[in-house]
Design a protein around this nucleic acid. Sequence first.
RNA 1: GCUCUGAUGGUGGAAUGGUAGACACGAGGGACUUAAAAUCCCUUGGCCAGUAAUGGCUGUGCGGGUUCGAGUCCCGCUCGGAGCACCA
Length: 939
Amino acid sequence: MEYRFNEIERKWRQRWVEQHTYEVKEDPSRPKYYVLNMFPYPSGAGLHVGHPLGYIASDIYARYKRMKGFNVLNPMGYDAYGLPAEQYAIQTGQHPAVTTEQNINRYREQLDNIGFSFDWSREVRTCDPQYYHWTQWAFQKMFNSFYCNTCQKAQPIEKLVQHLSQHGTEGLDAAQTEELHLTAAEWNAMSEAEQSRTLMNWRIAYLGEMMVNWCPELGTVLANDEVVEGLSVRGGYPVVQKKMKQWCLRVSAYAQRLLDGLDTIDWTDSIKETQRNWIGRSEGTEVLFRVKDSDVTFTIFTTRADTMFGVTFMVLAPESELVGQLTTPEQHEAVEAYVTRTKKKTERERQIATDKTGVFTGSYAINPFTGDEVPIWVSDYVLAGYGTGAIMAVPAHDSRDYAFAKTFNLPIIPLIEGCDVSQESFDAKEGIVTNSQGKDFSLNGLTVKEAIAATKKYVTEKGLGRVKVNYRLRDAIFSRQRYWGEPFPVYYDNGTPRMIPEECLPLELPEVKKFLPTETGEPPLGNAERWAWDTVNRCVTENSKIDNQTVFPLELNTMPGFAGSSAYYLRYMDPKNDRALVDHDVDAYWKSVDLYIGGTEHATGHLIYSRFWNKFLFDLGYSCEEEPFKKLVNQGMIQGRSNFVYRVQGTNTFVSLGLKDQYEVTPIHVNVNIVQNDVLDLEAFKAWRPEYNDAEFILEDGKYVCGWAIEKMSKSMFNVVNPDRIVEKYGADTLRLYEMFLGPINMSKPWDSNGIDGCARFLRKAWNLFWDKQGNFVPKEGTATPENLKSINKLIKKVSDDIEVYSYNTSISAFMICTNELAQQKCTDKGIFEQFVTLLAPFTPHIAEELWEQLGHATTVCDAPWPECQEQYLKEDSETISVSFNGKTRFTLDLPTDISREDAEKAALQAEATPKYLEGKQVVKVIVVPHRIINIVIK
RNA sequence: GCUCUGAUGGUGGAAUGGUAGACACGAGGGACUUAAAAUCCCUUGGCCAGUAAUGGCUGUGCGGGUUCGAGUCCCGCUCGGAGCACCA
């Protein structure tokens, strides 16, 4: 009987749809399990073989869990907003919604080909108003909340307003943009608009004037994780720093909880470490410095409080507000020129620069420990956004300060016994402190660690400063000057931002005539005036105050890509709910994602924002778990394996790999789809491109062998392998199997079609177990032999163990071994075959369903119970045990398998061959270890 | 610079501290066939000895250590991949 995978796969895919096999409902009688893949951005290029890797891995696990009796949620959807569709729209005029729809349809077709157990009735798309309703809703909740440091959670903004009106900022401990001091009277005297503006200092979603990453080419600002080495991640365009008024999310308020939460979740160390780096917690001290002949004071942040006696100058960031206050008239011109020069530099230029530049302000600060006057400089090696934007410089013990001091000839005072700072600074936090004697305070003789602690204590007691924890993590910039994103549900009342009433959500994205900024430089939504006024008239009741002559009444920015992907896992639980993001009871059932699969590239983006977003919803009681993703598995990237042909220079002749060294050749990328096992299909090559029509070849052994290299999978390298082609040629089951067989899912590896035949061969062999040469169905009741039982139980044990740790490649090896054994044993027992098919079902569902039906079952194999291993069949009566002395095998013994350790020792010592090895020697101990070895230690 | 990862045949990769190289690909040999494809069987880390069965030595990036026994644990390097980085 021939294995016709095409027919079988088509049949079952259709039946799964008809019978709603993969649709799930909340079912309190069964335990739940939530499996999730990072949903894809549907790009125009379609899926390549790398994309389904994670989906297959999670599908296997989801199917396995279902067979183990869990109610499994395994949804899929699309992260549909994004720059490529919009860039394409700008070039072609094609509406992004149209291209996105097309791409989604193509993705769906490709995904359906692979036989996933997704519950498509729960599909979400971030660009669907039914979906982004809740993205906008969450934003409004953030706008109407602040973060209370005392209770460590988000609170309604009304509580803050109440506090301000009764006590001002007195006793208020909340996450804020800058430190404000207000009395209740001052607050109450403010106009409503002023109060609204002031509240931005605390809101979790706030409008802030801040330095942003501006990308002129893309015409938009970008978040920190969207910029790498001063270039935009999308497109690689330069990014400059610019001060702009933008919507921001106060992610920094959650820094400590984001850090602490990492200890409660099962993610790999490396991705946790990446997030820890990104959050960048650093414990230190803030110290207040007075300025000579002035009332001005300023604070600096340091992690090396022990080096207070080595401060020889101070440095301000060029963007610091102190620069203006501290520059003396004589230095004004020089400082001005320096600050202007810095502004013109791109982020990248500032990062690359190794030389220290700077300028003296003319002012001096007074070291609170020594009373010394030290000059205050301005330099761009100090960052405005970190700490206080000002530092105390200790050139002896900080390499950057050292370089600056050398450049400008400033003094260097060493503070560690025996350190040599003539060539470079001594940065290590170790050694014994010296040179540190003040009026009433000395650090001499202490270790660095002790000195830091002592200084902290002193500073706090004397009111010179305080202990402070700083984080690198910045607030997320939430505005994009783009069209294809969620509109902000915000209108402006004479410049004061207000939320569109909740009952008016979703605020739908309007049609626009063009996707570029308006002539006045407004974002693309500025083209949609009609939409703006209609919205205001429809939703805002008291709109009399809005000046409809001059000011555009709605927010024109749209939200960034991470907005829609931050809470999508909650929406999958209850995707059609039009009254809430997710029903409370439904959320209480599904709780959080048990297994999340996706790439590491989202470590500092989506995976931070999502955790932040969920923690916020948790604080407000909308999500019942604090961490959204309990277990995270990162699938590796699938790289491309490119093939090359070698053209003899100046000819149209191509020489095979083994002979190319005899010629002057140019390697040329050749389409991997016309190469098999590195052998070129000559006719296909000639037909590939017109210029190769009359190509000639120099062959080796009658074949043209191509060279190869591992590169990124990309169109330009002609190494993109399309899963549809593999499915067509080998079937989806073979594709699934092969992708998993390539190696552990968390490792990056090149796609190499060379091995795929092995998996196809295995499935054919497995299929052939069920029919004899005449085409008769083999399985019969009650014919199991002990060998059959041993083989299948070995398989059950191996697959059950391996699947739990996602070691699918070794499971598949076990299947191959078992298949060969059953074939050799000429197994005919129906029970054995049923167990075999059941085990196979998560991996290769189509063939498993077909065989399951052939075995006489009317129900789907998806609900067959996962077999339990019967250990008794694995045991043997006796086995050969090697006996070794001092690590070398000397002889073997046949012993019963269930023999005790003592008896084994006795048997080994009494064995006939033993004495001659023991002559004149003393037995120290006998060690019985698993795997059939007894080791006798002698002296 | 700091942090995290990894290194095993021609290739992808297996090995709870216990016979390293499972399984697969590739390669070589053989069977079947007019032929090819497909299928099946055998060999396959390296070196040495033997007509052969087989035996010996060596071997998991490098150098040490712990252990009866180390790919696995510890210390010190080399090289690759990733993250952070003028973060005070």
